[in-house]
């Protein structure tokens, strides 16, 4: 009895290990051979995402892999199950132990990831921060992220294109104190105030709740029925804003959303939003590889790079707009 139990258990565990072995396949062979060689001919790059399975990071990974192939590197990608520093730290520690030549990482917390990443840099790994950053990034060879202020400006441009005659504009953001969304709001505000034909009504916070966003927008439309454009800094804010517009019975309001994951693209196709400001995660990734390569080969490195945006509307969805949408596979 006991022995059969053991056999089944062994089979279970064994199959797990086998799975692991198959799924590794080629990359293992590659990375371990180059890892063993060590030193300057180490051609591995590790990419640690903020969260596994998110289209933004998958698109970034595609950019990384394409550039790495061009430059002759192999890439292994890891990511925690949630955007959670307590889950990301063990992964970074193990990556450090595996001694890649470079590490591209999207830190999940400015404070919690500081020490683990410093440790990686101290182990001689070239660390490039992509998308997000830490409190004191001086150990990193380069930081690459979207220019969120520029993103806010781009959102304003999108409204301007749809409503060239000017009017009142409103921002629905998530919560105060989030650096990325705050920067987007600031960029929008600056651009709107600089243009005399538009009247900036300020920012309201939805607390990441579509219902709150809807209430805010319909109340704003009661007060100012002539609002022409709303910039919603994330998906829930955009969805709620659209509901609010419908509730208030307003027709001709342009809603501009942010990011271009499948949900956002669907919202665009459905007419919930009229334009999207897409970041360029693939560019962030490929720039990251390029900077890592520069650091490894002794070429000059750019300490800080800010990438641009693409505005997607229904009209360009089949052309450059569609290409800017985030991918779920490479």
């Amino acid at each position: 009895m006991r022995s059969s139990t053991f056999r089944i258990a062994a089979a279970g565990i064994g199959s797990v290990m086998a799975l692991a072995a198959c799924s590794t396949g080629a990359p293992t062979a590659d990375s371990s051979s180059s890892g063993a060689a060590g030193g300057s001919n180490n051609k591995t790059i590790a990419f640690v995402q903020g969260v596994a399975g998110d289209e933004f990071y998958i698109t970034m990974k595609c950019g990384i892999e394409a550039k790495a192939k061009e430059l002759g590197y192999t890439v292994t990608t890891q990511g925690p199950q949630k955007f959670d520093p307590t889950l990301q730290k063990p992964i970074v520690d193990s990556v450090t132990a595996s001694k890649p030549a470079a590490l591209l990482v999207a830190p999940t917390d400015v404070e919690a990831m500081q020490a683990p990443l410093e440790q990686a840099a101290a182990a001689g790994i070239k660390v490039v921060l992509v998308d997000t950053t830490v409190n004191d990034p001086s150990f990193a060879v380069s930081q690459i992220s979207s220019d969120n202020i520029g993103g806010g400006k781009a959102a304003f441009e999108a409204i301007k294109k749809a409503k060239p005659n000017g009017g009142k504009v409103l921002v629905i953001s998530v919560d105060p104190g989030i650096s990325t969304t705050d920067a987007r709001v600031k960029g929008f505000e600056d651009a709107a105030k600089a243009d005399g034909t538009y009247q900036y009504l300020g920012v309201q916070y939805s607390h990441n709740d579509p219902a709150t966003a809807a209430n805010l927008v319909s109340a704003a439309l009661q007060k100012d029925p002539d609002i022409v454009g709303i910039f919603a800094t994330n998906l829930f804010a955009a969805e709620g804003s659209a509901t609010g517009v419908r509730q208030a019975g307003a027709k001709d309001v342009t809603i501009v959303g942010f990011d271009a994951g499948p949900n956002q693209i669907k919202a665009l196709k459905d007419g919930t939003v009229q334009a999207l400001v897409a970041q360029q995660p693939a560019v962030i990734g490929s720039d990251g590889v390029e900077q890592a390569n520069n650091a490894l080969t002794g070429a000059p490195v750019e300490k800080k790079i800010q990438t641009g945006f693409t505005i997607i509307t229904k009209d360009n969805l089949d052309a450059e707009g569609g290409q800017a949408a985030y991918k779920s596979t490479c």
Binding site: V16, L19, A20, S23, T24, P27, T28, S31, S32, A52, G53, T76, T77, Q78, G79, P80, Q81, P90, I91, D93, S94, V95, A97, S98
Partner: peptide, 18 residues
């Protein structure tokens, strides 16, 4: 398992499966 999988470069999805 997680440390080993990260070091030999197995995709994070397989780790959850394991």
């Amino acid at each position: 398992l997680q440390s080993g999988f990260v070091i030999i470069g197995v995709s994070p999805y397989w780790q959850t499966v394991a």
